[in-house]
Write a protein that binds this DNA or RNA. Structure first.
Lengths: 334, 334
DNA sequence: GGTCTTGTTGTAAGCGCTTACATGTGTAAG
DNA sequence: CTTACACATGTAAGCGCTTACAACAAGACC
């Protein structure tokens, strides 16, 4: 008996689900479990005859190696996590898509966690960190302390659209310059009194956009607002009180929400260039969301597989997309 | 020395990442690993003093139990998977969001896999199946054979928007009746020659919608088409050749794409009621996408935790949303 | 015929955790 | 002052896999 335990007893008891293990395969192929493992991993030569017998046994038994056993022995999960606030709204969906796509290519499963404003987010993140080889955080999903704690356990971390914490890699999109460009465009329209709708305290992206605008329009008036359509819609009253010539919104959803409420009576711009923006004719700034996720996956993989060195702080370029929502053009080009 | 291995030697060698294990916690608290485990799981009484010592050691060492070790011992992953074709487009993003939200509530992590038309999808699915306690498949991401194979290993499976396979649970949204309703509405507009834009062979949802329409408009003309905006855009030529009074598209994205190409010259309807549909004024059928995911997570959990019995085949209700894209209303109500 | 390779396979020690069972202590009962 | 019984804790056997090391067989070579 080679088995140290009861593995040999294949007895299909009335239990729930008796998964077939490497022991049963070994027994059926009349080899040791080590040989089965070697055939499956293919990193050590095995005689062709034996290999064939093992493969036959694997097929007949429909054997699937347990990830738990494998992971424990190899000390790795072959999985990455990504944490974001919410998947509704096209922004995070695109980021996650890009991330998954690359991670899968690299042979890593991806675990998602939507913090969703849950108060237990921190615990959920630590829990997630215990089951992956690396972790990506999008924007302000958790506080810096949590990021630091995860990083301290040695788990590689990449931050998306968020200022650096400790010496962790980050990937962001360009905000300041394109915000300035957008502001200039609005000035070109002849607008003077401009409102910035969005909460700069809650997102470094928003803060940078605000700063970029203020560089060009020092008198910019900030009006606090959430992130979604509803917030934009509800902000209409507060915006109207400012009697603005134009409103620069922190993202497309807010812009779209505001547009619904004002029926287009006020020139508006967004940020992100989500699908709905095209149909609403929204002037906005396009950012490469999918690329953001893809890049994060690659960066993470490098760290996991051992790359050392200075933290990366990549910045991806964005592009101003002028449509009709900012009003008729006195002289600008499209 | 209680440790059977080298666990006791805490030596922080120059290695990559020496995770703290239950052995170190035990040593620090001067108890056995069994006691540490008991304190952490809280299912067996431990004297208050000991528990406090253990908790202190856990905190000082920043100990995080390994999911691999725990999962192996408990024979469960505490994780669910979900497989979908693509996350771009709001449909799957919403489904996944609803799924994640409930799964997290139930204490399960969620692993996502986008099949993305990859030829290796089948292997990736089997791989995923080996690391979760249950799996959800959205629409036609993999063939029936694969679904059967996963189900055969004893892994609970739930199908979303897909016809039953073996005796697996399914969740779909109502298609036939709302399609008939939509067709009637179009008839009410006075339209007679109607095209159905979409590929009924590639989705049971689309097939049902087509059938529902045909019940009311037997002369409905099918025109093949993909799933996304681009497909809709490119189908404009083929559609025009049919000189239709109106076009019923298989989903909103196709409808939106078509609309861009025809500049609204043809009455069009979609399906799903995605965000962009509201801004494009698209007449469509709303389906509860988030609820679809949420329900799947609950159903799966029931099966995982042991519910037996007949397969469920839930059907969620949908709702016709009339907007302007189907043309001016001769007499209909909103 | 004996020694050395080389190639193939088995043995067994972990990986980090849970838990049935055994052991030891203090206290109530006889 | 025993005997019994709770209660708290330790001991050790797994969970399913990988892999260093040992063992062995079959040619190659002198």
């Amino acid at each position: 008996m080679e088995s140290p335990s009861s593995h040999g007893e294949a007895g299909s008891a009335g239990g729930r689900r008796a998964n077939v293990t490497i022991y049963e395969v070994a027994e059926r192929a009349s080899v040791s479990i080590a040989t089965v493992s070697r055939v499956l991993r293919g990193n050590v030569p095995v005689s062709p005859g034996t290999a064939a017998r093992v493969r036959a046994a694997v097929a007949e038994l429909r054997y699937r190696p347990s990830h738990l056993g494998r992971g424990l022995a190899e000390r790795q999960h072959a999985a990455n996590g990504i944490v974001f606030p919410d998947l509704s709204g096209p922004y995070y969906a695109e980021v996650v898509l890009g991330y998954e796509s690359v991670a899968a290519e690299l042979g890593r499963s991806v675990l998602i966690l939507s913090s969703h404003g849950r108060p237990t987010a921190r615990d959920m993140v630590m829990e997630l960190a215990a089951r992956v080889d690396g972790l990506v955080f999008c924007t302000r999903t958790v506080d810096d302390e949590t990021v630091r704690e995860v990083a301290a356990t040695g788990t590689p971390v990449v931050l998306i659209a968020r200022p650096p914490v400790a010496d962790v890699d980050t990937i962001t999109t360009e905000n300041r310059d394109s915000a300035a460009l957008l502001a200039e465009h609005l000035l070109g329209h002849g607008y003077r009194r401009v409102v910035f709708l969005g909460d700069a305290d809650r997102s470094s992206d928003f803060a940078e956009r605000f700063e970029g605008v203020r560089q060009i329009i020092p008198a910019i008036v900030p009006v606090a607002c959430g992130f979604d359509e509803n917030s934009g819609f509800r902000a209409a009253e507060a915006v109207r009180r400012q009697r603005p010539d134009a409103v620069i919104c922190c993202n497309d959803e807010v812009a779209l929400g505001l547009t619904s409420a004002t029926a287009g009576s006020v020139p508006v711009t967004g940020w992100d260039d989500v699908m709905a923006a095209r149909y609403a004719g929204l002037t906005t700034v396009r950012q490469p969301m999918r690329e953001l996720g893809a890049r994060a996956a690659r960066l993470l993989d490098e760290r996991i597989t051992g790359a050392r060195g200075e933290p990366h702080h990549d910045v991806l370029p964005t592009r101003l997309i002028v449509r009709s929502s900012c009003g008729p053009h006195p002289k600008e080009e499209t």
